[in-house]
Amino acid sequence: MALQELTYRDALRKALADAMTENPDVVILGEEVGRYGGAYGVTKDLIKEFGAERVIDTPISEPAIVGAAVGAAMTGLRPVAELMYVDFIGMTMDQLANQAAKIRYMFGGQIGVPMVLRTQGGTGRSAGAQHSQSLEAYVMHTPGLRLAMPATVADAYHLLRMALTKPDPVVFIEHKALYTMKESVDLDAEPLDWGKAAVRREGRDLVIVTYSRQLHYCLEAARTLSARGIEATVIDIRTLNPLDFDTIRAHVERTGRAMVVSEGVMTAGVAAELSARITEECFDFLEDPVVRVAGEDIPISVSTALEAGSVPGPQLIADTALRMLAGRVPA
């Protein structure tokens, strides 16, 4: 099929519509998903196509939205629960971490909870401290939950379609600053496997490991670095659980330098986990300490200047790489 120009939002919507057409047990439930069309428009008009019994507008009750999805998934539906902002995940943490994540294990493998929790996070819309966080570490820290964070339009489509075939609960975190991003994609092309990292750029000097919106900042930084004679490999891990560490290891062993870039706060975050693993497993190959470039250990401000300053950007990523390779950069 020919390439088509799609936004990240349209790709997500198409993934939901295609899954609902293919599988009559797929239902969506969440706040404003029906008549309103989703706070960010991802479910726009799906209610017209699939009806109010499959695109279910709920009261503002995040714990029960997730809890109902758990019960639905255990009794034969394929629910997609929507959490309007990942910042509300604390409201749902019992249903997510104590119920959805542990049911298969606690019950000795009798049943799984094949549900998807769609949500979005990150900075970029001056939305303040309670609507701008990157809380993926909460999810990654909970065994039993799968975690996907698409950075590209093609992944928005394919990862969501794949998430809807997985036997275990998947938390699917979109980035609010990517919804309007456009790409030409061929949705019929063979997608990359679930759980496989994407090497978005190859270079000999260092590896930058990242995901979600920071991928685009890393690629921008890599172009800057290239102009200075430094070639970076950029790995988009796409799914944080399962994590494709083999791809990371192979490239770190080849280049001997690694940087991990994440929008989430630095301390005890995803970057900390990745950095620890690279240090442990690639120790003999490393020329430099693994460097984390992550969100500041502070809440996000509504001021656009403070907001942008709170998270990594292309400049910080490029500057950090230049310092790591200081001895090798032509003056």
Partner: peptide
Amino acid sequence: PAVVGAGLSARH
């Protein structure tokens, strides 16, 4: 809340 989900399944 799981019974709400089971109720949705029964309806569906």
